[in-house]
Design a protein around this nucleic acid. Structure first.
Length: 551
DNA sequence: AAGCATTCCAACCGCTAAACG
DNA sequence: TCGTTTAGCGGTTGGAATGCT
């Protein structure tokens, strides 16, 4: 089976052309490594045919023999990849189904970046495919500061982590704990950052996808289960510091496309997240709570994600942690979490209007979209619930919240319009994803978070595009927070010809001229809407972002 | 419509671990 | 025990497709 599409052929041809003059030349038999010229670049149909024929005759394996016996000018590794990723007859083509997406997330929570093993669980899918999927689509969630793992998984991981931690402590003192098990033990991975000369506090803020190369992927997704082998990790542990990831739990309902919803929106009806089969304990209380894509802490890349807190300070977010039993009652969580409908009603911002009206509903085929959509709704609701008590119930433990608020008082006031999307993007992001130590409960020992995260909420100065010296609360500039709003407005409220409304536009408007926005006190009014977030603007943000900049 | 930016994806590289002789 | 081969993984690259201005 030669599955060369005309597209891929074109692509390959183009790439061949570009790749190297040598690529064509070597295809006639040359060798490159060790004197033998092996062809690189896209495979041709002829090569595929040869490979298929060979494998059909001889079976898989012994890939280095392919070149010898078939005349292919490809190294065995290349042959193996080509076969595994494209020529295998049992490959499933096309985009991932929602079920597969679900499965991938589930598997990733279970295995970490064990792509091959994940692929084994997904018939017809390849590790490369899954990896690409994860590294691209999941980034959406990361950028949006949305959770990826079901909180149930997170909770289990946290529990296991604590247990193993205790064990480790007992057994070997304060040693770095390694992955206890690849498969059956959920452990919130320590996020290990190599020496980037960065302030851990800053690193902590980095969404994985925005981290400098070298910290990305497996262990850069923050909370994700590092795929580093224990040996590797031990080797590298020298210059690393550890971030124990606190996680929060947000339960998400299952989505269903309401027939009577003119916009085909997915609405929560049942737990989306079926209890992972690999751990019955995850099915807490026998509920089918989905606890969608939980541990958003790390993912959202914001303060809550991977606080460089001491292990003793593993933080919970009670205020955001909905018990599994609440899942079924999505509309009536114990905390003042409004129903989805209420959310739409409560968030009477332009965005919410969009949410109701022309909200690009999550495609029914897109689990991620659904998650994003619903998560945003949830965040809205969280915002509201938090907003209510923000001024009056700033816990001592809500250091992040309170301190940031204090520090940014003028800005908060300026943009803290509860109706404004800015409120959401900036303030609510704070509120929602900040590892509120002990959350809203004051019984939790109030950690000295500001001390463990030095300067986290300091105002920062950064030169943007070499033009402006901006000064603003670091939190304001965090891409995740900004993107959160961006994503929000895009996924939910922004139609094609609409501009980003409110604060985010204000924040990211022309040339990211924060100085200007400061001057205008980050107005949230319509007049200050940006014409949209230019891509270059976003590049600017990323480029300016402290951890990369400091690098 | 054109130009630019971003996203997606195939393919690769370098490295490591496991398997095997 | 050691060397070789194979498999797997993280990360990267770059063209095509797509979206935005």
């Amino acid at each position: 089976m030669i599955e060369m599409t005309s597209d891929s052929d074109k692509r390959k041809a183009a790439r061949c052309r570009k790749n190297s003059p040598g690529a064509e030349e070597v295809s006639s038999g040359g060798n490159s490594s060790g004197g033998s010229c092996l062809k690189k670049g896209p495979w041709t149909s002829a090569e595929d045919a040869i490979l298929v024929e060979y494998v059909t005759k001889h079976g898989e394996g012994n890939w280095n023999a392919v070149q010898k016996h078939s005349g292919l000018s490809r190294c065995g590794k290349s042959c193996r990849l080509r076969w595994a990723n494209h020529l295998r007859p049992d490959l499933k083509k096309g985009s991932f189904t929602p079920e597969e997406e679900n499965r991938i997330i589930e598997l990733h929570a279970k295995m970490g970046n064990k792509w091959a093993r994940m692929a084994a669980e997904l018939p017809g899918r390849t590790d490369n495919e899954i990896k690409n999927y994860w590294n691209t689509r999941i980034k959406r969630l990361l950028r949006a500061g949305l959770p990826i793992y079901p909180p149930s998984v997170s909770r289990q991981a946290r529990n296991d982590s604590q247990q193993s931690e205790e064990m480790m402590t007992c057994q070997s003192g304060d040693m770095h704990h390694s992955e206890s098990s690849d498969t059956n033990s959920f452990q919130i991975p320590e996020v290990e950052f190599k020496n980037f000369g960065l302030d851990p506090a800053l690193l902590d803020l980095a969404p994985a996808s925005l981290l400098p190369k070298g910290v990305s992927s497996s262990n850069s997704y923050g909370f994700m289960f590092s795929s580093l082998n224990p040996q590797k990790r031990l080797r590298e542990v020298d210059s690393q510091f550890h971030v124990t990831v606190p996680s929060t739990s947000i339960t998400f309902p299952k989505f269903e496309q309401h027939e009577d919803d003119p916009f085909g929106r997915l609405v929560p009806v049942q737990p989306l997240w079926s209890p992972p089969i690999y751990d019955p304990d995850l099915n807490i209380n026998g509920t089918s709570a989905i606890d969608v894509l939980g541990s958003h802490a790390p993912i959202n890349g914001n303060s809550s994600s991977s606080e460089p807190v001491s292990e003793a300070m593993k933080l919970e977010l009670p205020s955001l942690q909905y018990s599994a039993s609440q899942v079924g009652s999505w509309a009536t969580p114990s905390s003042p979490l409004p129903s989805l409908e209420s959310v739409d009603t409560l968030i009477q911002s332009p965005l919410s209007e969009h949410t109701q009206s022309n909200c690009p509903s999550p495609r029914s085929s897109g689990l991620l979209e659904a998650i994003v959509y619903e998560s945003q709704s949830l965040k809205c609701s969280n915002y509201n619930s938090h907003q209510q008590g923000l001024d009056t119930s700033v816990m001592a433990g809500d250091v992040v919240e309170s301190s940031s608020r204090n520090v940014c008082e003028p800005k908060w006031d300026a943009c803290g319009d509860p109706i404004s999307p800015l409120s959401h993007s900036a303030a609510s992001v704070f509120v929602e994803f900040t590892p509120v130590s002990g959350g809203s409960s004051s019984d939790e020992p109030q950690s000295a978070e500001p001390e463990t995260i030095p300067g986290k909420f300091d105002w920062i100065s950064a030169e943007l595009d070499g033009k402006k010296d901006i000064s603003c609360p670091l939190e304001y500039l965090r891409p995740d927070a900004l993107l959160d709003s961006y994503w929000f407005s895009h996924r939910i409220g922004r139609s094609k010809d609409e501009s980003i409304t409110g604060d985010f536009g204000a924040l990211l408007g022309d040339d990211f001229n924060y100085e200007h926005k400061q001057g205008s006190a980050l107005p949230c009014d319509e007049s200050n809407q940006s014409s949209g977030l230019g891509t270059s603007t976003w590049d600017t943000i990323c480029g300016v972002y402290p951890f990369s900049k400091n690098n």
